[in-house]
Write a protein that binds this DNA or RNA. Sequence first.
DNA 1: TCTACACCCTGTAGCAACTACAGGGTCAAG
DNA 2: CTTGACCCTGTAGTTGCTACAGGGTGTAGA
Lengths: 134, 134
Amino acid sequence: MKIGELASATATKVETVRYYEKIGLLPPPARTSANYRAYGNDHLARLSFIRRARDLGFTLEAVRELLTLSDDKAQSCDAVDGIARIHLTEIDRKVADLTALRGELDRIIGSCRHGTVADCKIIETLAPRERDKA
Amino acid sequence: MKIGELASATATKVETVRYYEKIGLLPPPARTSANYRAYGNDHLARLSFIRRARDLGFTLEAVRELLTLSDDKAQSCDAVDGIARIHLTEIDRKVADLTALRGELDRIIGSCRHGTVADCKIIETLAPRERDKA
DNA sequence: TCTACACCCTGTAGCAACTACAGGGTCAAG
DNA sequence: CTTGACCCTGTAGTTGCTACAGGGTGTAGA
């Protein structure tokens, strides 16, 4: 399989495949006489794994750990579970942060009276009051 | 005001203040004889504005637009409102994405039977099935 | 046989929004 | 007079790619 075929089979860009190789996530494949990368099914499986984990929002470092763990079939699954749970906690934190932000922003937008900038409640909320500076 | 004072007054790092100057968000201040940056209240106000907008999740480019708009007091507030609404939409999209992701991840974690990696449901979900590859 | 075109190669620079040095200079207190 | 906290410039690092630039390769049609 050439890099373009592997890339389209996994909905990945060619540059991204080379990038994964460069950072050691994907092992360097054999080369053809023309120095083209020649991939096998093991590469396809590994790249699919990476893509799915990335789609679930795992960082590349977490993906690297998951790949290492998945290679040791006899090991306990708890380490895998732990990584996933940490990621879940992180997502919960982000959702909470964004939701709070959304509320704040919504409140500010709701205060807009569509006048001029001089009376703009949105700008006023962002700028410190003149009286506080005096 | 020296850069360290301005920074601590706005909960900003000194390097970040210099960065904002470099990208043109904060105008270059006067310098002392020792070449130290000397800030005034206008800089404090502007940096406060930037920080509040950033805290609300606006990108630096959006902040730049908001600052430009806030300088033209006679203009309609609608452009400001528009930028804020675009940002709100973006936040809603992110929350929706993360919430979907969270559900998926939670489902996967829930399937964990705490056995060995060979039987790990989390790894199985990420890896393509062996039978699909044969 | 030529040539166009799609693909492949390496290497580097760019994105957001900072952060962290390295390697200097300045200034006030003790 | 020296210590330490501050200031300066400039560059490189972070995450996860993406986009060239400047080449080589392979194949299909005229």
